[in-house]
Design a protein around this nucleic acid. Structure first.
Lengths: 141, 141
DNA sequence: ACTATAGAAGATAAATTTATCCTTTTAATG
DNA sequence: CATTAAAAGGATAAATTTATCTTCTATAGT
């Protein structure tokens, strides 16, 4: 479904959002250890997110990545699109360029219906809201 | 969602199923032209499907690929699993190995719900049934 | 039998994704 | 102000996926 880069990015953002009301700061090393993710690859993904203002960063000792108010108002859809583009989300499940409600591929309506639920969640809940809703039980990121 | 190989395979099988009550024979060249798919790559995918008895083939002049009775009773799920394995279907959307109903990742239930509809179709309708249901309108494969 | 056609199989190449390393820049702290 | 920690950026390598080409094998038709 998602690429590794996308998965790592989503998990890292959710992790950041789950620290001290989403206001904690974590370095790449800490995140990569916590999530058991390759460190340098994760660094690239996080830098990509930072460049696009999906997350924030500070350099130097004690630095790392965190979410500011604007960041926390972004959605998981924003996160994944920042990493993968919107192809995976918007493209025909069979890869056809001419697939639409008017000229649907044989799986079109099933695929659209299937995506809707997940996409709705990822598009319509801010990271803040999303993680808050989960935090009654311990997060398994 | 699916790899190119998977998409090509699904489209080719659906195309075969749509010819003369699913009994027509088509060569790689014809299929690749019809679907606008790279020929040699498609050949690999089709051979892979033939080896696993998802589709049938005959060599020599007039030869090509077709679906026998058993083939037509297979599902689109069988097709995609023969090409990609069941990882994409069964794996955690965030790539975690320890994600389950008991210990769900933050997207687990949305992802499961989302997949269900599509998977149900792909698992529970034979290729024959599936394509027959579509053939009231022209197929856009 | 001979020839032409078409899939099977194997090898190779190109492109993309994933992963790692190294150098530079920024910032905190003694 | 020197040192150190940590992100930023660039380069490179490994792995996987996609694409192509060549040779081999089976089969139909003459």
């Amino acid at each position: 479904m998602f690429t590794k880069a996308g998965q790592y990015g989503l998990r890292a953002v959710i992790l950041l959002a789950s620290t001290e009301n989403g206001r904690g700061i974590m370095g790449v090393s800490e995140i990569s250890k916590t999530l058991d993710i390759p460190k340098y690859f994760l660094a690239k993904v996080l830098q990509q997110l930072a460049r696009q203002d999906i997350i924030s960063s500070v350099r130097g000792p004690g630095g790392g990545f965190y979410l500011n108010d604007i960041n926390r108002s972004k959605t998981l859809y924003d996160v994944i699109v920042a990493i993968e583009g919107d192809k995976g989300f918007e493209q025909c499940i069979l890869g056809k360029s001419d697939c639409s409600n008017e000229v649907p591929c044989p799986l079109h309506f099933q695929a659209v219906a299937s995506r809707e639920g997940l996409f709705y969640q990822m598009k319509n809940a801010s990271i803040e809201q999303f993680v808050h809703g989960k935090q009654f039980s311990p997060l398994n990121v």
